[in-house]
Design a protein around this nucleic acid. Structure first.
Ligand SMILES: NC(=O)c1ccc[n+]([C@@H]2O[C@H](COP(=O)([O-])OP(=O)(O)OC[C@H]3O[C@@H](n4cnc5c(N)ncnc54)[C@H](O)[C@@H]3O)[C@@H](O)[C@H]2O)c1
Ligand SMILES: NC(=O)c1ccc[n+]([C@@H]2O[C@H](COP(=O)([O-])OP(=O)(O)OC[C@H]3O[C@@H](n4cnc5c(N)ncnc54)[C@H](O)[C@@H]3O)[C@@H](O)[C@H]2O)c1
Lengths: 221, 221
DNA sequence: CCATCTTTGTGCACGCGTTCACAAAGGCAT
DNA sequence: ATGCCTTTGTGAACGCGTGCACAAAGATGG
């Protein structure tokens, strides 16, 4: 029976072994003292706990550059996610296959969600359309949203939103880069400022937003 | 003079006003008691602190679906990032313009980095090539990397890596989704398990990895 | 069957980030 | 000028996650 010790796993994941053991203990006591954890059983338990033993149908709304890349991405399927439908507002795209899946028009959104029992939606529309799309998804029964548009979505309680903002990722890198390049100690205010910076820009009289409502320019430019 | 109070900003950003004030205090005391913060000055100070007042040249390596979408993304420029070059290993792509920028071959990588003084690199290659690309970038002088490939990159001290893993974002949503759908209290082990799950899969004899070395399948499938 | 050795599971303490709460500061009206 | 009112800046307390350290568990070998 192949096993791993918490020490080995901790080294591989780059975390403390005690923390790892404590985390595992929340799932129950699957380890064997003096031996370690049964790899196969452990993988199964974690998979089950994380919800990987079931297939999650997802819809992607907004099949532009990013949406198409996501549709083509094979990494989702291997983690238990199935692209149930691609949805776009552009009538010219309707019926056109992307990654082998025909794009459907936004009109069908509610029906698609309902028919497929979709509870997870991905938003890859321009920022200006995101909130509206979000509301339709939620109204149709979606309770988890992965948002790529650079907007803060407001949703009712019970709905989870995760935002992927690539600009902020780069900003965080640039921030640390600046540190390395000089500027002695300075402040320790880091990523926390990010959200606040956005809020400040918004407070600046909404003048920071472009015509199509995309990324608020924090820099006066 | 347009001003904002910490209370207003905190409400907008969804954080505690005391925390926000304390964060700002690390940048110095820019507020006026009884009035609030001068919006314009505040925005400038935060921009400067975050490194947004200078332009950062970045290179994108791996111009496939995702890399092309990134190259086309306008949100970078508005935050002070300039796409200095697009790099791909496919000779067929060399010279072909993507988003108006001609793709250059990997052979030129070191020269491009050096000529443009690039310190931030984006990796959008398949997972199997990521570590190698990473090493070349670092050797050429890049000290910050944004990694989209589903691999843990190992880098020398002094180099920052941020990883964007869309599968994990979806997994986190699915995890909470599963909670809502039943399964009473259970464990509170959440995202912390993600990294450990990957390590466990790796420990499972590397059998979880596909032929092209993409996403390790945590689920035995 | 007992001794020994390895590794788990977890109580406890430490440290850090968040929040509370309030004195000091400054504007503004009278 | 004086007093009042608003909002900042921050000391102190709280809470939580992390890591240490060790007793208990179990395997393994003699
Ligand atoms: N491309 C990137 O790398 C990238 C990176 C970060 C963030 N983003 C963000 O992701 C979003 C999409 O980026 P993109 O580059 O794919 O843009 P895009 O313009 O190429 O695609 C947007 C798509 O959304 C569709 N759309 C517009 N309104 C819609 C609506 N109401 N309902 C359904 N579909 C609608 C459009 O028809 C179009 O196909 C943007 O908000 C962008 O800021 C993109
Ligand atoms: N497409 C997505 O939505 C998505 C989402 C999450 C993660 N990812 C990850 O991002 C990466 C890219 O995804 P994609 O869909 O764009 O894949 P892709 O196959 O479309 O593109 C990969 C590109 O990298 C180039 N390449 C290969 N080896 C290279 C090397 N050594 N040096 C430089 N270039 C090289 C290829 O020529 C190709 O153009 C993958 O690791 C994928 O797992 C993609």
């Amino acid at each position: 029976m192949p096993t791993v010790s918490s020490e080995e796993l901790a080294a591989a994941a780059g975390v403390n072994s005690a923390k790892l053991r404590k985390d595992f203990s929340y799932l129950g006591s699957y380890g064997t003292r003096g031996v370690g954890y049964d790899v196969e059983y452990l993988v199964y338990q974690i998979s089950r706990e994380l919800g990987l033993t079931q297939d999650w149908p997802v819809v992607i709304v907004g099949i532009g550059n990013l949406g198409a890349a996501l549709a083509n991405y094979g990494g989702f399927a291997s983690r238990g996610f199935r692209v149930a439908a691609l949805i776009d507002a552009d009538p010219a795209m309707a019926g056109k296959p992307v990654a082998g899946i025909p794009v459907q028009h936004t009109d069908e959104l509610e029906k698609i969600i309902d028919d497929n029992g979709v509870s997870i939606g991905v938003i890859a529309t321009p920022a200006g359309a995101a909130q509206q799309v979000c509301e339709r998804l939620v109204a149709a029964g979606v309770t988890s949203i992965l948002n790529f548009a650079p907007t803060v979505l407001s949703v009712p309680d019970g709905v989870d939103v995760r935002k992927v903002d690539l600009s902020i990722e780069l900003q965080i890198l640039a921030f640390h880069e600046q540190r390395k390049a000089g500027e002695e100690a300075e402040a320790q205010a880091d990523a926390a400022l990010e959200a606040e910076a956005g809020a400040a820009a918004a407070a600046a009289g909404k003048s920071g937003k472009g015509p199509d409502g995309d990324v608020p320019a924090v820099m006066p430019a």
